[in-house]
C-alpha cells in the first residue's frame, strides 16, 4: 500500500458517498445516469468475486464489501426507491456498445484464460467506459448539478491517483499490471474533458455546470 493508492481509494469512496447522499437527501435521482451506476455495480461484482476465496487484508476485504454495498444501494435508490425521478428519457446511452467490445476484449486480452481472470479483466475494461452513459447524459441535458460534478471529480481523481500508484510501484517494487494500467489511463483520459469544464466552470462558483 502507498499514499497514492490510499488517496485513490479514499477519493473513490468519497465519490460514491457523495452520490449516494445526494440521491438520498434530495430524494431524487434527476440528472443521474442509472445505467452508469448499474455498470459500476457490475464492475465491483465481477472484480470482487475473490472476496471470499482470497484474503489480502482487513482493509481490502472491508473496502470491497463497502464498495459493493454502496454501489448496489445506489442502484436500488435509482431504480426502486426514487424511480419516479429517474430521467430515463435522458439516460439513453446504448450500453451494449460498451459491453460487447469489453466482453470481446476480456476474452482476447487477459492474464489467464480462467473464469476469475476473465471476469477480473472484464471489470477492469468495463470500469474504463462505465462513466460514458453519465457523461453522455450531461452533454444531452447540457448541464449538471454542482454536487454531481463533485461526484465526477472524485471519481476521475481516484483512477488518476491509481496511475501515480502504478508509477510508484513500478519504481519501488518493479511491479506493473499492464491491463490495469492501460485501462486506467484510458479511463482517466475520458475524464479530461470533464476536468477542464470542472476547473473552468464549477470551481469558479458557477454552481451548475452548463455545457457550451
Amino acid at each position: 500500500m502507498n499514499v497514492f493508492r490510499l488517496a485513490g481509494d479514499v477519493s473513490h469512496l468519497v465519490a460514491i458517498i457523495i452520490l449516494l447522499l445526494k440521491i438520498w437527501r434530495s430524494k431524487s435521482c434527476a440528472g443521474i445516469s442509472g445505467k452508469s451506476q448499474v455498470l459500476f455495480a457490475l464492475v465491483f461484482t465481477t472484480r470482487y468475486l475473490d472476496l471470499f476465496t482470497v484474503f489480502i487484508s482487513v482493509y481490502n476485504t472491508v473496502m470491497k464489501v463497502v464498495f459493493l454495498a454502496l454501489s448496489y444501494a445506489t442502484v436500488y435508490l435509482i431504480y426502486m426507491r426514487f424511480r419516479n425521478s429517474y430521467n430515463s428519457e435522458n439516460d439513453t446511452f446504448r450500453v451494449e456498445f460498451l459491453l460487447v467490445p469489453v466482453i470481446g476484449l476480456s476474452f482476447l486480452e487477459n492474464y489467464a484464460f480462467t473464469p476469475l481472470e476473465i471476469l477480473w479483466t472484464f471489470s477492469i475494461f468495463l470500469e474504463a467506459v462505465a462513466i460514458m452513459p453519465q457523461l453522455f447524459m450531461i452533454t444531452k441535458t447540457g448541464e449538471a448539478e454542482s454536487i454531481t460534478t463533485h461526484y465526477l471529480f472524485f471519481l476521475g481523481l481516484y483512477r488518476a491517483l491509481y496511475i501515480a500508484n502504478w508509477v510508484w510501484r513500478y519504481h519501488t517494487e518493479s511491479f506493473y499490471d499492464l491491463i490495469a494500467i492501460v485501462s486506467g489511463v484510458v479511463q482517466t483520459i475520458f475524464f479530461c474533458d470533464f476536468f477542464y469544464l470542472y476547473f473552468t466552470r464549477v470551481l469558479r462558483g458557477r454552481g451548475k455546470m452548463t455545457l457550451p
Binding site: R5, H12, N60, M63, E117, Y176
Partner: peptide
C-alpha cells in the same frame, strides 16, 4: 506471475 499481484488492488 503478475496475475497474482493485482488482487491486492481494489
Amino acid at each position: 506471475d503478475s496475475s497474482v499481484n493485482h488482487k491486492d488492488e481494489l
